[in-house]
Design a protein around this nucleic acid. Structure first.
Length: 420
RNA sequence: GUGAAUGUAGCUCAGCUGGUUAGAGCAUCUGGUUGUGACCCAGAAGGUCGGGAGUUCAAAUCUCCUCAUUCACCCCA
C-alpha cells in the first residue's frame, strides 16, 4: 500500500540542521550587536487581531489587501510584520511610562501569502529593531549605524541607501507636485505606472522599467520639498552618519510599501539576490503609536532585516567558517558487557557537561570508528572485555592518533578529555 | 493574480534523433583475516523516470492534460 506523502506547504520551508548552524550564527551575532547598543529582546505572539494590521500597515496596501493569512471567522491574522505587534505591546503594557525611550528587538517568523521566489517565502523570518519614544535624529543615525555594524561583523557587503519621505505637513504638497509631473508624462510610462499614478503616485518613482526611470529622472525630488522641520531633521541624520563614518548614498526614488513611514527611510541593498535587493529596510514612523492608541505624537523608528536573505548572502560567500560544535568523546562499547558499561558512563559524563555520543546498533569497531570520525569526535574510548577486566579503557586522540589507557571512571576520563 | 523554465536514486546530474534487465558521482551500509577513523579498493542497497491519458509493435524519450518546483512580473524583508 502506498501512503500519500505529505509535503510542506508552498512557500513554507524546513531549515535542516546543517543550515541551522548558519542561522544561529546570524542570530547570535545580531543579538550580540544589539546588546552592545543597549537593546532588549521582546517576544511577541504570532497571531493578532486583524484590525491591528489594517490600522498600522494601511487598508490599501497589498499586504493587507491580499497577502494576509487571516482566520476570517475569528477576525485574527498571522502577523505579516512585527512592528505593529511590538507597538501594540508597548502601548498595552505602558512601557512608555516605565521608561520614556524604549529600545526593543524581536526575532521570528512572519507570514505573507505571496508567490514564492528567490529570497521570498510565505513564512519568512525577520529581525525587527525599534526605538520608541524619541524623535531625535541622533537616534535615527545610531540605529542605522548599528545595522551597518551588524553587516560588517557578519561579513556581508551591502550598500546603504537613504531618503526622507517628509511628514504630514510637507508630503501632501509634494505629492500633488509629483502627480502633476506624472500626469504630464503619463503617455511615456508603463501600464503599471499608469495604475500607480492613481493608487500610489510615489510608487512610480520606484518602477524598474528603464523607460519609466528615464522619465522619472527629472521628477521633482521630495528632498527639495521638505518642510523646514523635516529638512533640519534630515540634515542632522546625514551629519550623524558622517560623524560615525557610515557610508551611504541618497536615493530620492526610495519609497515605502507600508503607509506608516515618514521622514527618514533607509535600505541596505545588495545586487546578489536577484529581484530581491532589500536585505534590510526601515524608517521613521512618528504618529503610528498614537494611531494605535498610544501616547499623543509618540515617535518611533525601526527596521526589519530578512533572515533568509542574510543567510542566502552568507551561503553565497561559501567560506566554511561555520563549524558545528564537535563531539568531545565517542564511546565504543564492544560486546554486551562493554555496551552496558559504556551506556552508564556516557550518561554520567553528559551530566558533567561533556558532549558524548555512542552507537546503539551493535556495529563493528571499524564502523564505529568511522562514525566517530564523521561526527568530529576529539576522542574515542574503546571498552571491550579486555578493558573491563583491567578496569581501564583505550582512549584515542583522533587527531594525534595517540592512544592511552585511562581508568574507566567519569572523573579520570574528564581529566583527559576536558584538558583542552 | 500573470509569464517562462524545469521535474530521472537521499543530493547533484547523464540518458542524442522512441528500441533489450534506467546509469554516474557524492551520501548510506557491508567487507578488504584477530579490536582501530580519514585516503584507497571491492561489493550491496536505493528509482512505479512527478501523476494521468494518448500515439506506437515499443515511451524516461513524442502529444495532451494535471500536479509540483524554480525564476521573473506584481509587491516586499
Amino acid at each position: 500500500m502506498t501512503v500519500l506523502k505529505i509535503k510542506a506547504l508552498k512557500g513554507f520551508k524546513d531549515i535542516l540542521p546543517d543550515e541551522v548552524t548558519l542561522w544561529k550564527y546570524v542570530e547570535d551575532t545580531a543579538r550580540d550587536v544589539f546588546r552592545r547598543f543597549n537593546f532588549s529582546e521582546i517576544r511577541l505572539p504570532i497571531l493578532e487581531q486583524t484590525e491591528l494590521f489594517a490600522r498600522s500597515i494601511g487598508e490599501d496596501t497589498d499586504i493587507v489587501e491580499k497577502e494576509m493569512y487571516t482566520f476570517v471567522d475569528k477576525q485574527v491574522t498571522m502577523r505579516p510584520e512585527a512592528t505593529a505587534s511590538l507597538i501594540r505591546a508597548y502601548i498595552e503594557h505602558g512601557l512608555y511610562i516605565q521608561k520614556p525611550v524604549q529600545r526593543l528587538f524581536t526575532i521570528g517568523p512572519m507570514f505573507r501569502h505571496e508567490r514564492p521566489q528567490k529570497g521570498r517565502l510565505r513564512q519568512f523570518h525577520q529581525m525587527d529593531i525599534e526605538i520608541l519614544g524619541s524623535e531625535n535624529p541622533l537616534v535615527d543615525t545610531e540605529l542605522i549605524a548599528m545595522g551597518a555594524m551588524l553587516f560588517t561583523e557578519l561579513g556581508i557587503s551591502v550598500d546603504l541607501e537613504l531618503n526622507s519621505l517628509g511628514c504630514p505637513k510637507c508630503r501632501p504638497s509634494y505629492r500633488a507636485r509629483l502627480l502633476a509631473f506624472i500626469e504630464s508624462r503619463l503617455d511615456a510610462l508603463c501600464e503599471d505606472c499608469k495604475r500607480r499614478s492613481v493608487t500610489n503616485p510615489l510608487r512610480v518613482l520606484d518602477c524598474k522599467k528603464s523607460y519609466c526611470r528615464e522619465q522619472v529622472e527629472e521628477a521633482p525630488s521630495i528632498l527639495e520639498h521638505l518642510c523646514p522641520d523635516c529638512d533640519v531633521h534630515f540634515s542632522h541624520v546625514q551629519e550623524g552618519l558622517q560623524q560615525l563614518g557610515v557610508e551611504y548614498s541618497l536615493n530620492k526614488f526610495m519609497v515605502r510599501g507600508l503607509d506608516y513611514y515618514c521622514r527618514t527611510t533607509f535600505e541596505f541593498v545588495t545586487s546578489d539576490l536577484g529581484a530581491q535587493s532589500a536585505v534590510c529596510a526601515g524608517g521613521r514612523y512618528d504618529g503610528l503609536i498614537e494611531k494605535l492608541g498610544g501616547p499623543k505624537g509618540g515617535p518611533g523608528i525601526g527596521f526589519a532585516m530578512g533572515l533568509e536573505r542574510m543567510v542566502l548572502l552568507l551561503q553565497l560567500r561559501e567560506n566554511a567558517a561555520f563549524t558545528r560544535s564537535d563531539l568531545e568523546l565517542f564511546v565504543i562499547g564492544l560486546g554486551e558487557k562493554g555496551e552496558q558499561l559504556s551506556y552508564g558512563l556516557v550518561h554520567e559524563m553528559r551530566g558533567q557537561k561533556c558532549r558524548v555520543a555512542m552507537d546503539h546498533e551493535g556495529r563493528s569497531l571499524k564502523s564505529q570508528m568511522k562514525q566517530a570520525n564523521k561526527a568530529g569526535a576529539k576522542y574515542v574510548l574503546i571498552v571491550g572485555d579486555d578493558e573491563i577486566e583491567k578496569g581501564t579503557g583505550v582512549l584515542k586522540d583522533m587527531e594525534t592518533q595517540q592512544q592511552q589507557e585511562v581508568e574507566l571512571t567519569c572523573s579520570a576520563l574528564l581529566e583527559v578529555v576536558k584538558k583542552h
